[in-house]
Lab assay of single mutants.
Amino acid sequence: RNLTILSLPEDVLFHILKWLSVEDILAVRAVHSQLKDLVDNHASVWACASFQE
């Protein structure tokens, strides 16, 4: 069985995303439609995003 980041529970993905910069979140968003939906549909992803580079 192949395990990917998409195999992780949504709460784990949120925990990972909250540590990323805006640039990295946008890069993750571009990788897969499921990740794009996760980022686009949950404001909590952006609430913790680091807007300082």
Rank of each mutant, 00 (worst) to 15 (best):
L8Q: 00
P9V: 05
E10L: 04
V12R: 00
L35W: 05
I16Q: 00
F14Q: 12
T4A: 02
L6T: 06
S44I: 01
V12E: 00
S21T: 12
L8F: 13
D37W: 07
H15N: 15
S44F: 09
I25A: 05
V31N: 05
L8N: 03
S44Y: 07
D11Q: 13
S33P: 11
T4V: 00
Q34W: 03
K36F: 02
L8I: 06
E10N: 05
E23F: 03
I25W: 08
K18R: 11
L3T: 07
V45G: 11
S44R: 09
H15T: 07
Q52G: 11
V45I: 13
L6C: 04
A47F: 15
V12L: 09
H42A: 07
Q34M: 11
V39K: 03
W46L: 12
V31W: 02
S7E: 10
I16V: 10
L26T: 08
V22Y: 14
L13T: 14
H32S: 14
A43S: 13
L3W: 05
E53Y: 09
F51R: 10
S50L: 06
V12S: 01
P9T: 04
V45M: 12
L6Q: 07
V39G: 04
D37V: 13
W19F: 15
V28Q: 03
V28T: 05
H32R: 02
L26P: 04
L38R: 05
E53R: 13
D37F: 10
L8K: 03
H32Y: 01
V31K: 02
E10V: 06
E23W: 05
L17Y: 03
L26G: 07
L3C: 09
L35M: 08
A30L: 15
Q52S: 11
N41K: 15
E53M: 08
E23R: 14
V31F: 03
A27Y: 01
W46I: 09
V12N: 00
S7H: 10
D24S: 01
V39A: 09
V39E: 02
P9D: 06
L13A: 06
L38N: 01
V12T: 06
L20V: 07
H15G: 12
N41L: 09
H42K: 13
S21V: 05
Q34I: 12
Q52Y: 08
F51Q: 11
L38F: 14
V39I: 13
D40H: 06
K18C: 05
D11N: 14
D11A: 14
K18S: 10
E23N: 09
L3I: 12
I25P: 02
P9I: 01
S7Y: 01
A27W: 05
F51M: 14
L35Y: 04
V28M: 14
H42N: 08
L20K: 01
Q52L: 13
C48I: 09
D40R: 03
